[in-house]
Write a protein that binds this DNA or RNA. Sequence first.
DNA 1: TCTTACAACTTGTCTATACATCTGTCAAAT
DNA 2: ATTTGACAGATGTATAGACAAGTTGTAAGA
Lengths: 250, 250
Amino acid sequence: MQPANKQNIIAQDIASKIHHEIYAPKTFLPSEHQLCELYGTSRETIRKALDQLTELGLIQKIKGRGSLVLDIQRYTFPISGITSFKELNAALGMHACTKVLHLKKTVLPPQLITEETNKKQPAFFVERLRLINQQPAVLDRDYLLSPPVSTLPKTAAADSIYAYLEGKLGLQISYATKEITVEKADPTVAKKLALLADGLVVVVRSHSYLEDTTLFQITASFHRPDKFKFIDFARRKKILLHPTTAKKEF
Amino acid sequence: MQPANKQNIIAQDIASKIHHEIYAPKTFLPSEHQLCELYGTSRETIRKALDQLTELGLIQKIKGRGSLVLDIQRYTFPISGITSFKELNAALGMHACTKVLHLKKTVLPPQLITEETNKKQPAFFVERLRLINQQPAVLDRDYLLSPPVSTLPKTAAADSIYAYLEGKLGLQISYATKEITVEKADPTVAKKLALLADGLVVVVRSHSYLEDTTLFQITASFHRPDKFKFIDFARRKKILLHPTTAKKEF
DNA sequence: TCTTACAACTTGTCTATACATCTGTCAAAT
DNA sequence: ATTTGACAGATGTATAGACAAGTTGTAAGA
């Protein structure tokens, strides 16, 4: 799935050791020089591996001292900048299941047509209901653009669409934009999520792209407010994008 | 504020040129070799600058072709992994103001005491109401831990606390964890935000840390649901943190 | 005409080295 | 007892070079 170069292998290995508390929170990793000898690589390669862990929030580098293992795994672990169910984190191993309500080949509806899609863009439409402890928690409505998504069997939709796209179709998923809002639930959505009429629902809209910047997925995810939780780890960015703008904190 | 090393200057410069469409969306940046000559640096330095832009979502690197300028600035620009007002983006230059409701030195309330704080942790408590077009939009309740925050004048609270901490006190803000949920509004919150009784409110709780991993701020931010919007750009992470866990998409 | 092979260019990865800067320690000087 | 300074060890930054691997256009070949 991911290129098996040295820096990734090292990052994966250290991440795993942090996860298993071989490197415990609030302790320092071996120094970069020691890691060089440990893995038999140059210092830059070690540093690129550590950069990945820093970005993920697993460690914090402190100049002159070392790389400190952070104690925020409970926050950052199951996710990585994604929306998830409230219980999905705590409830690893809980009874969660996915019910595929619809799956058909169609074209993108007019309101989703933009300059980055064709006029009559073919797509697979998938509607899925996520249940946790038999309770409806999330309703996903996905359009998977075709091309690049050539086929989409129902079994893949019930399991993990991403695993299918990456594993079977060999697509390389790269990045996504997400937008979270709270809106009044549409009656069809309210019914499927067992919400009160006129109830509020959390909506996560996202566009997902491949490595060659091809748009391949447009999703709206409707979450029951009481089941919704979004966890994020953010580093303060150095680049000022709007120097003239009143800076928002973080 | 940020170290003025070559890679940051170059990243800042290219980001600025992208912003002003000197490098337009859907076009390629000059090649790394050309950028080397342009800035008179080595290729690794250029690459580290480009890595920053990649992480921010300004460009996408494509092997064998070049660095493509992405067309998602409208999404990613005013933010960078932060929560913001719904209008704050569109409403740059709109009439937004901050009213400081409270500012006092106190100790951290019991429910916020954790193993990473002292038992009787002194802190500044600040309560601020953010108004947009004279409408209450967000209520912020901040505890700024003292130490490391030695002083906090009211003028700083009305302006930007972060600018004060970084500029005047010389603190180096590094990272934060955030958690977004939707909850029933407490009566005191509902009143200040002019919500319906028993209405829902979006709550963003965050812990913010300095570069030496000192916790310095605990915040709860209450957003009117109809004014709330969170925008995010996320890259697919390579590191598998829970290999045994059902992978969540992204 | 079509296909293949290659050259030129791109980014990706890794190495080795050098020097700057910060932290902590410890010994010497005050 | 306190301060100062030297030093070792840590991360931060920059450089130069080498080779791998992907993309594109072109020229040679069938």
